[in-house]
Each structure stands twice: as structure tokens, then as C-alpha cells.
Simulated assay, not measured.
Amino acid sequence: MMEKKDVADYGLPPRETMILEEYREKHATFEKLLQVVKNILSESIASNSIYINALEARIKAEDSLAGKLERKAGKYSSLSDLTDILGVRVITFYSDEVDKIAALVGEIFEIDWENSIDKRKMHDIHSFGYSSLHYICRVPRALFEDPAYPELNDIRFEVQMRTALQHVWSVLDHDTGYKSGFEVPKEYLRNINRLAGMLELADEQFCAIRTGINNYRRHVQSLVRSGKFDEVPLDGDSFGNYLELRPFDSLNNRIASINQAEIHETSLVGYLKLFLFLGFKTLGDIEKMIKENSEDAYQLAAFQLANTDLDIINSSLAVVNLCAVHVLKRGGGVLELTRCLDELNGPSEVNRSRAEHLYGRAKKLAFMEAANS
């Protein structure tokens, strides 16, 4: 283990040397504060159901602090003048979530508004550079207090809030810009700014796309609840909302009553691909199929169960029989039934046997005679 460097070895002026000594003396308090702030933020973000990319926290390294004190000699009178010894960064996925996190931080901590800054509003028309929202905070005693660390509530710390793409830009800009130690040639700077503009546009578009999708989902939910099924395109979101109405329950209950059977509930989400395979475009197409084929689907199920003592049926039985009747009424046979089962379950010889069984039962029923006449 390397021996700790003596504070005097940094060669700082007397005041800056005292600040560095104070930093060492209070390091344990900063470590405690780091854990307190991370815990408070993590719990608050989770309890508000905000899904973030990352929550990071760090205490400024001694060498980094010494370098800052050297560059800005005379600016600071004591360690308390520095607000970034403890830095916390919350990285969100979407730009509108930065404001949600900011509101949350404002509710939790005491904010030093005079020294807080929203760098997102500082770009001029020639700048595409990414930045973030910076709040200077304290932990209020009403929220947390520890007699073992009496100075903890007096220490200011920085909370940075930015999107994942803003964070990417910040890292790239840091590595290709001032950190390299020389002025970036204009041809490279232009490309950096173009890239930053692309990232900024991507950030905006991701947020806009998510907003659009959420609005679409709410619109679909409203149409489904109101029963306007012909206006609802058939897709994963709309089908999921439709299943919440339990449209196949009535037929399942009729079928179960044949043997006074129990209904074993199973997910019907996978049947979306079968309906799409059958060419259905809207939820109205499914509703039409149910209205037109329920009685024949019931008769087909009754024919299958009549001579059995089966006392448990699967909740998918209704939809399977509805689809089978739908196919058969349109002139389909064993081949078409097999293709439907292959689409639903994946290709298998079992599907052929099952299709033959269904067809054998169905051809004795009245609706098949009408379809073939």
C-alpha cells in the first residue's frame, strides 16, 4: 500500500493547504453523507416509480481537489465554499424525466437556488453541446440527522441530472475537448458539434416517440372500453386491452357446463399471431367472428366432450373452436387447420393429428353441411 502523500507536498498556498487538510479531516463525514444521499434518492425514485438508467455518487479525489485549488488559488476561503466535494449524478432515459427527478430532489433536499444552475438553457445558436441540470443541496435535519456526524447537515453537495445521451455526450466531449490539453482543430470541432446535434435530436425524438406511444395506448384503451372495436387496429396493445374484457368467457362457461367442468385459466396473448394469420385487421373482426360462430363453436365443443368425463377444460378451448369454425366455414379443411395450429404452436406432427380430429368432429355438424352445399 502506497504511503499517503503529505499535504505540504502539493505545494499549495497556505489557505489552500488548510482547505486540503480540512478535506482530510472531514472525509469520513463525506463518506457518511454519500451513503445517506444515495439511500434517500434511491428509495424516493423507486417509490415514485421512476425507472432510471443509473444513480452514481463520488467524493472528489484528493489529487483532483488539489489541482482545483491550485488552478483557482484565492477563490475559496474554506472547504464549505466548495459545493462539489460530494457529487451525485442521476441519469435518466428520457429528457422529460430529468424534470421529474429535479422536482423530486427539490422536495427532498434543501436547495441552494443561487448556486444551482440549469445548463440546458445556456446553449447559443452555434452550440449543440450537452449539459445537465445541477442542484446544490443540503440534507434537512427533519429528513436525517446523526449525532455522530454533527456537520453532515451543513455540507452542500451537488446533484446532476441528465439523460443517458447527455451523459454520453459529456464523456465524449470531455475526452475529445479540454481534457486532451490542446485546442481541437476546426474540422474536428465541426464534426463534434454535428454529432452533438444528432444526439440532441435523438434525445428529443425518443421522448416524443414515447409520448406518442403512450397517447396511442390511452386512445386504444378508451376505444376498447367504449366498445368501438371496428376503430381499433389489431396489435399487441389493443389485443391486451381487449382480453381484459374477457370476450371468450361466455362461450367458455357454456362449454364447461357440458361436463360441469372447471376452467383452467391460461394466457391468450399468443393467439394474436393466429388472428393476424387469419387476416384480421381490427378488434371488430374478432368480435364479428365471436358473434357469427359462437353457437357452432359450442356445438363443436359439445360433440368433442359429450362422451367424456373431462372435468377441467382450458380457457383457450373457446378461441380454438371459434377459429376452427371460422376456417371451416370458409371452405378450409385439414390442411388449413394444420397451418393455423402450426402458426400458433410451431410446426409439429401433433398439429396434423389434432387438425384431423377437429375436422372429423366438425364435418358431422350442420354448419359444415351449409358450408359445403
Rank of each mutant, 00 (worst) to 15 (best):
E231W: 08
D6L: 09
Y149N: 06
D9N: 05
D173F: 13
A297C: 07
K228Q: 01
K5E: 11
I263Y: 01
L12M: 01
R162V: 10
A102Y: 14
V232Q: 05
A366T: 11
E369C: 00
T211I: 07
R162A: 06
I209A: 08
S226R: 08
S49D: 09
M161Q: 03
D6E: 15
S226E: 15
S131Y: 06
S257M: 06
D96P: 07
L305Y: 10
L305A: 06
M122E: 14
F93K: 02
E3P: 09
D309Y: 04
M1R: 07
I59S: 01
V320S: 15
K186T: 12
T338N: 07
P14V: 10
Q260N: 10
I111Q: 00
Y298S: 05
Q160N: 04
G240F: 10
A164K: 09
I52F: 04
A102K: 15
K363A: 02
S373R: 13
A202N: 15
S353T: 08
Q160E: 12
K121Q: 13
V327N: 00
R120K: 08
A57E: 01
A256K: 00
S77T: 15
D230S: 03
Y188M: 07
G212Y: 01
S226W: 09
L223A: 03
E31M: 11
K329Q: 08
T83Y: 15
F30E: 06
E343N: 15
R15L: 05
N293I: 10
S373Y: 14
L189T: 07
A362K: 09
I91G: 11
L337T: 02
L274P: 09
D112L: 05
E369H: 14
N252Y: 05
S315F: 13
E3G: 06
H126K: 10
T29M: 07
M161Y: 03
L34M: 07
D63A: 00
E244T: 13
L152N: 02
P247F: 00
L20A: 03
K38D: 10
L317T: 13
Y23V: 02
E244C: 02
R217P: 02
L223P: 04
L268W: 07
G346N: 08
R246M: 03
Q260S: 09
V36K: 04
H326K: 13
